[in-house]
């Protein structure tokens, strides 16, 4: 999360700088009265760099994909209760005769 977020912010800054350069370039074109046909080379490089960084950040920052298969390893977590000390395995049913049917037959 941390690294991806920083990369995304950096990509955004690169894009912002590209936008600022383009605004200046358009202002200059207006002064020399020429038509805008495309941004200058350094702006194109900045745009591609910013796009690549932001694409990486956009893919890395959101939550990781979780497996939807019910029998995959990640979905087979067995939860134990926190109060294990209070679990009782000895109870009064233990002293009752287990083989009750035998008793009834007699």
């Amino acid at each position: 999360m941390g690294v991806g977020f920083v990369v995304g912010v950096f990509g955004g800054l690169v894009l912002a700088h590209a936008a600022y350069s383009t605004i200046q370039y358009r202002g200059m074109l207006k002064i020399v009265e020429e038509e805008f046909s495309g941004p200058p080379m350094n702006v194109v490089v900045e745009l591609l760099l910013g796009l690549a960084l932001c694409t990486w950040a956009g893919l890395a920052v959101p939550a990781k994909f979780l497996s939807i298969l019910p029998d995959s390893d990640e979905n087979r977590i067995v939860y134990l209760p926190a109060n294990l000390d209070f679990m009782i395995f000895n109870h009064r049913g233990k002293i009752l005769p287990t083989n009750t049917e035998l008793k009834f037959k007699i």
Binding site: L15, P39, L51, C54, T55, P62, L66
Partner: peptide, 26 residues
């Protein structure tokens, strides 16, 4: 659901970034 949400976030963010780039590029 969690995977879909992740994809939705990514796509929205990439659309915005793509729009900004296309706008600057002209």
């Amino acid at each position: 659901q969690s995977n879909m949400k992740s994809i939705y976030y990514s796509r929205t963010f990439l659309s915005i970034i793509g729009g900004v780039v296309a706008g600057i590029w002209g």
